[in-house]
């Protein structure tokens, strides 16, 4: 984990090679990668804790990556989430890594994606927890097989979420704090109504809305079951491979765009051409491809235009 988190050039290449090896050698479908996102205060950490207990009860080992925001000013970050994730204490079958969404040393995608890849090779299940503030939902949806959106009753945040057009991303909605009774049920109903209106990709899966109370442990089993059946449906329909591929391709493009801008992408034919190229690329070694394409762009940039 320390290696794939290291941005020094020598280490970086070592890490990329390791990651590609892990990606290609891990037999499909491998460990389910579950993303959890939601507004601050929705109770994600407590829910992760409850879910962790349930998964451990089912005998599965769990790797967790929790992403916290970092201060734009100082670059520092308080990774305080773990205080409420206690099921892991002293359990060798649980690994917990917190990460800051460091603006300074590269984006959220890089380090998190690398961490998830490593943990997926070692643990039965991988959980990724992020604070839902706009961009991160689509970031996490690219590296998760199943995206769980954690909503809370009285959902002002939910309305924002719908407005932002993000309703089509999650595969499961968990309405937390069901111990608050009527308010939680109302939010669940609103969500179900909202889901009926929204457009979704033509897949078989209809996102369920699960009422949970992380505090009292209510609905956790149902949530865990919903996650399992979503993963099973992905495997069965063949959607899993497609989805992972799409996520990996988006990661490649973003990595290049972050480094060279759209200007750099234009030098090798532009974004659309790159997407088409990746779609027919036979090798699964996405990290290696980033490096190869980067070299291509650099060469193109070095040549005079014309």
């Amino acid at each position: 984990m320390n290696l794939v988190d290291d941005s020094r050039p020598g280490r970086r290449e070592q890490a990329l090679a390791l990651l590609d090896q892990l990606e290609s050698e891990t037999p499909a479908p491998g460990a389910p990668r579950i993303g959890l996102t939601g507004a601050p205060g929705a109770g994600k950490s407590t829910l992760v804790d409850a879910l962790l207990r349930e998964l451990r009860r089912r005998g599965r080992s769990v790797g967790i990556v929790a992403v916290d925001p970092s201060s734009a000013k100082s670059g520092g970050a308080l990774l305080g989430d773990r205080v409420r994730v206690r099921a892991s204490a002293g359990d060798p079958e649980v690994f917990f890594r917190s990460m800051a969404a460091r603006e300074r040393l590269g984006g959220l995608a890089d380090a998190t994606r690398a961490g998830v890849t490593v943990l997926a090779a070692v643990f039965d299940v991988v959980l990724v927890e992020t604070v839902g503030v706009g961009q991160s939902e689509s970031d996490v949806s690219r590296l998760a097989d199943t995206l769980v959106y954690v909503a809370q009753p009285g959902a002002g945040d939910l309305l924002q979420f719908m407005k932002a057009g993000l309703l089509e991303l999650p595969d499961i909605f968990a309405v937390n704090k069901a111990d608050q009774g009527a308010a939680a049920r109302r939010t669940a109903l609103e969500l179900e109504a909202g889901l009926g209106l929204g457009e979704r990709e033509a897949s078989q899966w209809t996102p369920p809305v699960v009422l949970v109370s992380a505090r009292d442990g209510l609905g956790i089993r149902e949530l865990s079951d919903a996650i399992d059946s979503h993963f099973a449906s992905l495997v069965e329909s063949g959607e899993l491979a497609l989805r992972r591929r799409r996520g990996a391709d988006a990661f490649v493009i973003e990595a290049l765009e972050r480094r060279y801008g759209s200007f750099g992408l234009d030098r090798i034919g532009g974004r659309g051409a790159l997407e088409r190229r990746l779609r027919v690329e036979p090798s699964a070694a996405r990290y290696g491809i980033v490096a190869a394409l980067a070299r291509e762009i650099e060469e193109a940039l070095a040549k005079p235009r014309g």
């Binding site: 201060s71 100082s74 670059g75 520092g76 970050a77 308080l78 990774l79 305080g80 773990r82 205080v83």
Partner: peptide, 16 residues
């Protein structure tokens, strides 16, 4: 200490 460490740019794991 945790708050100060964050303010000087460190990543801080504080678990209570």
């Amino acid at each position: 200490i945790a708050v100060k460490a964050r303010d000087v740019g460190m990543e801080v794991v504080y678990e209570g």
